[in-house]
Design a binder for these strands. Structure first.
Lengths: 232, 232
DNA sequence: ACCTCTATGTATAAAAG
DNA sequence: TCTTTTATACATAGAGG
C-alpha cells in the first residue's frame, strides 16, 4: 500500500514475505486492540506464521473468549443439524447452558442501559421503564439516606469540636488572666469558632449543598473530620 | 484517521460507537484475511460486539486453529509449571469462570433494579444513578417514537375508513332513491361517521391520549384497526 | 443500521542504512 | 533482520441520506 499497489495473493519472495508478515502482523494486532478499546468489544486474534510461530492478542482472557466462541459456534451448529460430536458435546452442553445464561444476562443488562432496544415491543419497553424508574428511585433513596447520615455525622463532629474549643478557650482565658499574656491566641480561636458555625448552618439547609468545602483549618487532625462527601 | 484524530479509548456516544464498530470490524477482518493470504499465515479472529454478537474470520478451519492454539498455550503453560491436566483443566476452569460470571451479572442486575445496595459506596451509587437515568431516558425515547408511529398508522387507517364509509353512504343513497326503501341504514351510517370523526380529533391532540378506546362498531373487520395500544 | 462522500490520519511497499 | 525514510495506498471520522 505504498509506492506500488500489490495484489492480495501469496508473496513469492521469501524475504519480502517475512518483512510484510512482520509489518502487517503488528498493524493487525494494533488494530485489534483499538477495536476492543474503542468499541468495548471482546476481540481474540491468533496468528501462526508460515513457520509455525504463534502471535496472539486477546482483549480479556483468551480462554474466556474462546469459551464464549465455542458457545456461539455450538449453538448455531446445533440449530442446523444434530451433530453428535462425541463426548465433547456432553461436556460442552454444560458450558452451553451457562453460556446461554451469561448471554441472556448480558442482553438484559444492555437493555437496562438503554442499548439494543429495537426488537422490543411496547409492553417490554413499558416493563423496562417501570424497572428503571423503580431502580432509580431506590438508588436515589439509598443515596439520600447515606448523605443525610454523613451530614449528621459531620454535624455531630462539628458540635463536639465546638464544645472542645469552648472549653479550651475558657482554660486559656484562665491561664492568661493569671499570667498576663497577650490575647492573640484566644482571639484567633473565636474567629475559627464563628466560621465553623456558619458552615454548619448552611449545610443543614439542603441535602444537596456542598458539604465537602474547606472546613476551618484547625490542627485537631486526630478528631477526624474525614468523612468528606465526594458528590454533592 | 479521518477528519479528526481520535484518542484510543472507549467511545462514549453509543451510536458513534456502533458505527465505528461496524467500520473497524470490517477493516480488521479484511486485514486479517490479507495477512493470511499474503504471508501464508494461519489467522483466526473472533470478535464479540458489546451486545454479544459474534463475528469471526479464520484462514482455515476455526476448530483446527483453536486446537492448534490450545496446544501451544498448554505447552507453554506446561513449561512454566508441571500441570499435566491437559485440556481437561481448560474446560473445567471455563465452567468455573462462567459460574462466577453468572453470579456477577446477577448481582449487577439486582443492583440496577435497586436491590442489595447496602454494600455500595457513594461513588458506586452515583454510577448506578447515572446509568439508570441514561437507560430510562433512552427507553422513554424509544417508546415515544414507537407510540408516535403507531398513532400515525391509526390515523391513516381511520381516514381510509372514513373515505370508505363516505363512498358506501353515497352508493346507499343512490340505491335507496331508486328503490324507495326506508332510510334507516343511511341514518345510522351518518351517526357512525360523526362519532369516528370526534375520536380522530381527540387522539391527534396529544400523544398520551387514549387511542385504543372503543372505535365505531363497524363490520369492516378486514380493514384492520388492530394496532391497539396496550398502554396510554 | 447501512451507504456515500471526503478530508485526513495511518499503514505499509520499497529502498537505503 | 531490523530501522528509517518516503511516497503512496488505504482506512476511517464525521456528516448527510
Amino acid at each position: 500500500m505504498a509506492r506500488e499497489k500489490i495484489k492480495i495473493r501469496k508473496i513469492d519472495n521469501i524475504t519480502a514475505r517475512q518483512v510484510t508478515f512482520s509489518k502487517r502482523r503488528r498493524g493487525l494486532l494494533k488494530k485489534a486492540e483499538e477495536l476492543a478499546v474503542l468499541c468495548d468489544a471482546d476481540v481474540a486474534l491468533v496468528i501462526f506464521s508460515a513457520t509455525g510461530k504463534l502471535f496472539e492478542y486477546a482483549s480479556s482472557s483468551m480462554q474466556e473468549l474462546l469459551g464464549k466462541y465455542k458457545l456461539h459456534a455450538t449453538n448455531n451448529a446445533a440449530d442446523k443439524a444434530n451433530e453428535p460430536a462425541l463426548q465433547l458435546q456432553l461436556i460442552e452442553s454444560d458450558e452451553a447452558r451457562m453460556g446461554k445464561e451469561v448471554l441472556e444476562k448480558n442482553r438484559e443488562l444492555s437493555q437496562l442501559r438503554g442499548e439494543d432496544l429495537h426488537g422490543l415491543s411496547l409492553e417490554e419497553l413499558q416493563r423496562l421503564e417501570t424497572m428503571l424508574e423503580g431502580g432509580l428511585h431506590r438508588v436515589l433513596q439509598t443515596k439520600d439516606e447515606r448523605i443525610a447520615k454523613e451530614i449528621a455525622t459531620l454535624q455531630q463532629k462539628g458540635f463536639q469540636l465546638m464544645e472542645e474549643n469552648k472549653l479550651l478557650k475558657q482554660q486559656m482565658m484562665t491561664l492568661m488572666s493569671k499570667g498576663k499574656r497577650p490575647r492573640t491566641m484566644a482571639t484567633e480561636m473565636d474567629n475559627q469558632l464563628a466560621t465553623y458555625q456558619e458552615d454548619q448552618g448552611q449545610s443543614s439547609d439542603s441535602v444537596t449543598t456542598n458539604v465537602s468545602g474547606p472546613p476551618p483549618e484547625d490542627d485537631c487532625s486526630d478528631t477526624a473530620l474525614k468523612l468528606a462527601l465526594p458528590f454533592y
